[in-house]
Structure formats: structure tokens, C-alpha cells
Design a protein around this nucleic acid. Sequence first.
DNA 1: TAAATGTTTCAAAAAGTTTTGAAAATTCAA
DNA 2: TTGAATTTTCAAAACTTTTTGAAACATTTA
Lengths: 168, 168
Amino acid sequence: MKLTEAKQQFISSWGAFGTHWGINRTMAQIHALLLVSADPMTQDDIMQDLTISRGNTNMNIRELINWGLVDRVIVTGERKEFFAAEKDIWKVVRQIVKERKKRELEPMLKLLDQLEEVEGDKRDKNIKSFVETVTGIKRLGKQADKTLDMMIRADENWFLGSLMKLFK
Amino acid sequence: MKLTEAKQQFISSWGAFGTHWGINRTMAQIHALLLVSADPMTQDDIMQDLTISRGNTNMNIRELINWGLVDRVIVTGERKEFFAAEKDIWKVVRQIVKERKKRELEPMLKLLDQLEEVEGDKRDKNIKSFVETVTGIKRLGKQADKTLDMMIRADENWFLGSLMKLFK
DNA sequence: TAAATGTTTCAAAAAGTTTTGAAAATTCAA
DNA sequence: TTGAATTTTCAAAACTTTTTGAAACATTTA
């Protein structure tokens, strides 16, 4: 397979993959493009490569920067802004985990805390069933929260090393 | 907070939560409703509780059954089919991980294997950058694949216990 | 067997999301 | 300053996904 074709394939699959994870196709494609390109690219480069509009490009680059997956790069002697993806894939994963934990897991845990304190007789079958489910989810959620925290703080080798020992 | 209100809240948040994870709102809401209800419910119960159409209800119940998150329950003396959610939340998580791994992670790893074998001079900056990125992703992906396999096979206590030891 | 009850399908409508592109805003060099 | 280059915004259009509901299908009961 030729490089150009391989890049195309990677970009298109990464885009499809992203849509399963709540990331829109274009955002994932721009990320993919920057991941496999040797040098930083301008907005116009990206537009042309992916044949998407200026607005769409701009919007999604900004979103990628928000997620901490892409950085603005200043190239001396150039007026235009350049963009580059974080290439250390382990950092990328940690970054995504960190953001999603904050945006999704933490609010859910806060809600579960409230719901656990539903009024009424705990012997009532309906209340019992509700509280048990909520407590179960909360327990697992809190555990996941802690585990992810460790993972975010951890260094790649430490993490891989520990898992290898644990799961061998 | 009253039980009815608490249930409402739970169902609506679980629905919103689900949409971040590639599960549609209704599917997540039906799942939530069944999770917190003490007894199995019929399609008509669910329709009425969530005020959604018959077709929508049917479609999403079937999808939940496909995912292994909901079971048909036979109630003796009743003509209608009843449905109940798997209440062991740890089983639910394992089930979801298993499905998504199969549908998403595994095909991606297969593709990366192919892409790694791009033609051309490995000293070329562009090829080098591409191969390095792909290799990096593959390495992490393979590791994740293994780890998830262990997790799917593992028993709750074993998993929590090991993690507790590891991450304390 | 026919009627009644229950389940599934699917085309069309509604709702939700993403993309476009032109105009506005900003930045920078002269 | 001015104006050319660049970036950002946002309303409308295109596209995608979800939902509806009526009709078809299936199963049970009498």
C-alpha cells in the first residue's frame, strides 16, 4: 500500500471510529490527519486535504484545541497559524479520559448521591429496588473514578508495567 | 425527594449519559426504567411510562436484548411478554465492554496491522511519521485489548481487589 | 377455524446534528 | 492610520438519526 492511500484509510477509519465515541467525523478526521503528518499544517492545508469548508475546519480545530489534542504552533516567518497534534498516544488517551471523566462521570456521581437519599420506607419493595440499583451504580462509578484518576496521573511505563504484572 | 421524582431524574440523566456513549436516548431510558423498577414490565407499561410510540419501544427493547442488557421474562398466567434488566451493574459493564471491543477495537487493530506495512523508504520523513504514529496506536490498542479481555473474564471481587491493591 | 390479543416492520415525518459559505471581526505590516 | 491577510461567527442548507403509527404478521384462546 502506498503512503497516500494508507493515510486516506487511516483518516477515514479514525473518523468512523470517532463517531462511536461521541466525536464528530470531521473532528476525528482532522485529528487523524494531523497525527500522521510529519509537519504542522495550516487551516488552508487541512481544508484542502479533507475538502471541507473553512468554517467547519475552524470550528473543529478549535474543539480539538479545547480537548487538548491539538496545539497551535508558531512558525517563524509565517503569518498563518499552524497546527500539530500531540503524537504521544498515551498522552492523548489520558487527555480524553480526563475530559470525559470531568464532563460525564463526575456529574453522574453527584446525581447518584442525591438520588440515594430518596424519601420513604426502605422496606417498600419499590424503594428498595431503586436504592439498590443506585447504590450499585454509585459503587462501581466511584471505583472507576478512582482508577481513572490513578491512570491519569500515571506514567506510561508504570501503568503498562503494573498491568503486565497483574494480568500475566 | 419522592421516589417518582427520583426515578424520573434517574431515567432522564441515564438517557443523556447514554447519548455520550453512542447509545440512543430512548434505549438508555428504557434501560434505566427497567433498572430501577422492582418488577418486570411489558411493552405497554414501558410505552406509557416513557410516553413513546409502540414501534420505538419495540425496536429499542430488541436492541437492549441484543446487547444482553435486558431479558424476556415469562410470567405464568400472562399472555404478554415481560422484560427485565440485568441488575448486576458489573455484569452490565462487562457486557458492554465485550460488545464494543468486538465491534470497534478489534476491527481497528486489524486495520492498523495492514497500515503498518506501508511501502517505501522508512527514512523518508513522511513515511517515518506515519509508521511511528500507527505503531504507537497499535501498541496501546493491543494492550487495551488484552486488559479488557482479562476484565471481561474476571470476577468482580477479583478485579476490584486487585485494583485496590495496585492503586492504593 | 375465527377472533382477539400481542408483536414486529417500515415508510414517512420529525428532530437533531453537522456543514457550508459569506460576512464580520481581528491581526499585522507598512 | 490603512488595507491586505487571516481567523471567526452564525444563519441557512444538507445530512443523519430517531420516532411515529398504521399495517402486516404471529400467536393464543375459544
